[in-house]
Nucleic acid binder design. Structure first.
Lengths: 163, 163
DNA sequence: TGACAGAACGAGAATCATTATCGTTTAATA
DNA sequence: TATTAAACGATAATGATTCTCGTTCTGTCA
C-alpha cells in the first residue's frame, strides 16, 4: 500500500503530471473548489479565494478554472452554459447532445424506460419532472474524427486521467 | 395544405388568450421558431427573421423570445444557460435543480435505476453517458412559497425576488 | 371609421460574464 | 543564483443579454 497523500500533495502531483506550475493562487483556487460542496460560479470562487489572497485577479480565477476543466480536475454542471438555446417542441422529450459540435437532438420521452429514483429525496425536494441528456458524439462528428475519445473539445488536448 | 394558415390562427388565438398584441414581428418570430426543427439561439432566430423583416431589432427578438418563454409557448433547452457552474465532485452522479433558486444538488448515480433507451439511436450517435436532471422545487423554496406551481419563468429569480 | 391609450417597436446605451492583451512577477530547473 | 517560460494582475475587449427612451402600431371604443 502506498502512503495516503493529502489533497494538497495529490494536487501537486497532478500538476506535475500535467506540466502545471504549483502556484499559490492555483493551490488556493483548487482547495476552495473542493471545499465547497456546492456548484459555484467562477465569481463565487473568486470571492472565496479573495478572502485569502486579496490581490488575486478575477481573470486568474477564470484562467485556472479553465485549466482545471481542460485537465479533467473539474467538470461543468451542464454543457449548455453560454448562449440560450430555444426549444419549440411541445411534446415531452429529452435530448442528445454532441460534445463536439454541441448540436442538440430531440428524443421522444417514449424512447426511454421511465426514470426512477430508488428512494425519495430526503431534503423535501418536490420533483416536477426528470430531464435526460444523452451525452456523446453525433454521427457526423464521429465520421469526421472517429478515433478520439469524444469527451469534449476542452479535454481533447489531454488524456482523461482520474485524479 | 393549410398548415401555415392554421398555425397562424392558433398563434393569434393564443396571443389573445394571453393579452398579447399580434404584431407582424411577433408573428414571424414565432413562425420561424417552430419552422426550424433545431434548437436555435436568439441570434439565429434574429438572422432568420431578418431575412423577412430587414428592419427588425435584435432586442425585439430577445423581448419576444422572453415573452414566449414566460407564456409557455417555448422552452429553454437547459436551466443552466448563463453563468458557468463548476462541479468538483469526481464521483459519478446526477443533479437535482431547483427552478426557483437555481440551486443544484448532487444525487449519486446509484440512487437511480439505470437509464435505458428502448432502441439504439438510428443516427449513428455514439453514447458516452447519460445525465439525469431532477427538476423541481427544493425544500427551502417550497417552504418559502408553497402554493405556487414551481414552473416559473426563467426571470422569476430576478424579478420576483421578494414577495 | 377615427381617436386614444397602452403595448410593442427600433436604436443604441448599459450590464454581465468571459476572454484577451501586456507588462511584471514567480516557479522550475540547471 | 541565473535563466526562462509560465503565471499573475490590471485592464481593455468581446459577446450575450437587458434596459431606456422616443416613436409607431394594435386593440378598443365612441
Amino acid at each position: 500500500m502506498q502512503t495516503r497523500e493529502s489533497l494538497q500533495q495529490q494536487f501537486e502531483t497532478r500538476c506535475r503530471e500535467l506540466g502545471l506550475a504549483v502556484t499559490h493562487q492555483r493551490t488556493v483556487i483548487y482547495r476552495e473548489l473542493i471545499a465547497t460542496g456546492e456548484h459555484p460560479t467562477p465569481e463565487a470562487v473568486y470571492e472565496r479565494v479573495k478572502a485569502q489572497i486579496p490581490a488575486i485577479s478575477l481573470g486568474t480565477v477564470y484562467k485556472n478554472v479553465k485549466t482545471f476543466l481542460d485537465a479533467g480536475l473539474l467538470k461543468e454542471v451542464s454543457l449548455h452554459h453560454g448562449t440560450l438555446r430555444l426549444d419549440a417542441n411541445t411534446e415531452p422529450h429529452h435530448h442528445m447532445v454532441c460534445t463536439r459540435c454541441r448540436r442538440i437532438f430531440d428524443v421522444p420521452e417514449a424512447e426511454f424506460e421511465p426514470v426512477r429514483l430508488k428512494n425519495l429525496p430526503e431534503s423535501g425536494f418536490q420533483i416536477d419532472r426528470y430531464s435526460i441528456e444523452v451525452v456523446g458524439v453525433c454521427g457526423a462528428c464521429a465520421a469526421a474524427r472517429p478515433e478520439s475519445s469524444g469527451l469534449g473539445p476542452a479535454s481533447a488536448a489531454h488524456t482523461n486521467q482520474v485524479l
